[in-house]
């Protein structure tokens, strides 16, 4: 069964992203929203961790949260809310890291 993991907390000083990458399955995807999009700040540790995880087409970020934070997304596929909903339907379940 595939899982879409959703993280909204900043990866700086928080373990959610690191732990998620540790237990992410080969079919699972990760969507970054809210402050979690700071993980896409180039040259940082979380960015390096995402690069190393090499998720390819399985890493997503919410467009408006990137925009609001002046982040670009070399690494993640940018999605809007309708695409986010679509993603949740494409996976067997969603794990929100509250």
């Amino acid at each position: 069964m595939t899982t879409l993991h959703v993280i909204a907390h900043s990866p700086f000083g928080d373990e959610r992203l690191a732990s998620c990458l540790r237990l992410l399955g080969p079919q699972d995807a990760l969507l970054l929203c809210g402050d979690a999009t700071y993980a896409l700040q180039a040259g940082t540790e979380p960015f390096a961790a995402l690069q190393a995880a090499n998720l390819g087409e399985r890493l997503f970020a919410l467009a408006e949260d990137l925009q609001a934070r002046a982040l670009d997304s070399q690494l993640a596929k940018v999605v809007d809310y309708p695409a986010f909903v679509e993603l949740t339907l494409h996976h067997d379940k969603v794990n929100s890291w509250l």
């Binding site: 899982t3 540790r22 237990l23 399955g25 067997d92 379940k93 969603v94 929100s96």
Partner: peptide, 17 residues
């Protein structure tokens, strides 16, 4: 870590608090 991945896959629903 591998067993954690398998564990999460096995359940119908997951919530993280």
């Amino acid at each position: 870590n591998a067993a954690l991945t398998a564990l999460i896959a096995r359940f119908d629903q997951v919530v993280t608090l």
